[in-house]
Structures are given as structure tokens and as C-alpha cells.
């Protein structure tokens, strides 16, 4: 695998959508390529940042209202 192949598969790797063979190939490349490893960590960080930033819980009063409405 070269850096271009790695870059093309990075989204699916971060999203855990590659098959086991592809994962192995990509991991082997990352171990030997610090730049791709940094890129992978950046994209994984970006995904976590979006998740944590958009995280919020349902307001408790609304949850209770809905529970009563549906019971």
C-alpha cells in the first residue's frame, strides 16, 4: 500500500468500515509511515471532536413528558 491508497481508505478506516484484510494492510502502512499515521490520528481526532461537540442529552422535563404521553 502507498500513501495515496492509504489516504483514500482513511475515511473508511476511521469509520471501521474496512474488511479485516484491508485493515491489516493499512495498519502495516501506518506503522512504516509517520506522516500517514499523523494524518490518521488527525482524522480520528476530528471525528471525536464532531461527536463530542454535537453531544447533548434530552432535557429531562421533555423526556418525562414524552414518557407519560406514550404510556
Amino acid at each position: 500500500m502507498n500513501c495515496k491508497d492509504c489516504s483514500e481508505k482513511l475515511d473508511r478506516f476511521v469509520d471501521r468500515e474496512l474488511n479485516s484484510t484491508e485493515v491489516l494492510e493499512l495498519q502495516l502502512h501506518l506503522e512504516s509511515c509517520p506522516d500517514c499515521q499523523d494524518h490518521y490520528e488527525f482524522e480520528a481526532h476530528m471525528k471525536r471532536l464532531v461527536k463530542h461537540s454535537c453531544d447533548c442529552d434530552t432535557p429531562p422535563a421533555f423526556r418525562e413528558k414524552l414518557r407519560q404521553l406514550l404510556s
Binding site: 499523523d38 490520528e41 488527525f42 482524522e43 481526532h45 476530528m46 471532536l49 463530542h52 461537540s53
Partner: peptide, 24 residues
Amino acid sequence: YEKLRDEGARPEADVLDKLAASEV
């Protein structure tokens, strides 16, 4: 990542760590 790296920044430490959740 590539844009920041090519322009001399450290993509994670210089940028991601400084972005406010509200901006995301």
C-alpha cells in the same frame, strides 16, 4: 490535515485542540 501541514502548522496541537465546540 494536508493544508495545515503543508503550511507549516501542527494540525492537531495548533488547530484541533483550539477549536471551540460551539464553532464545530
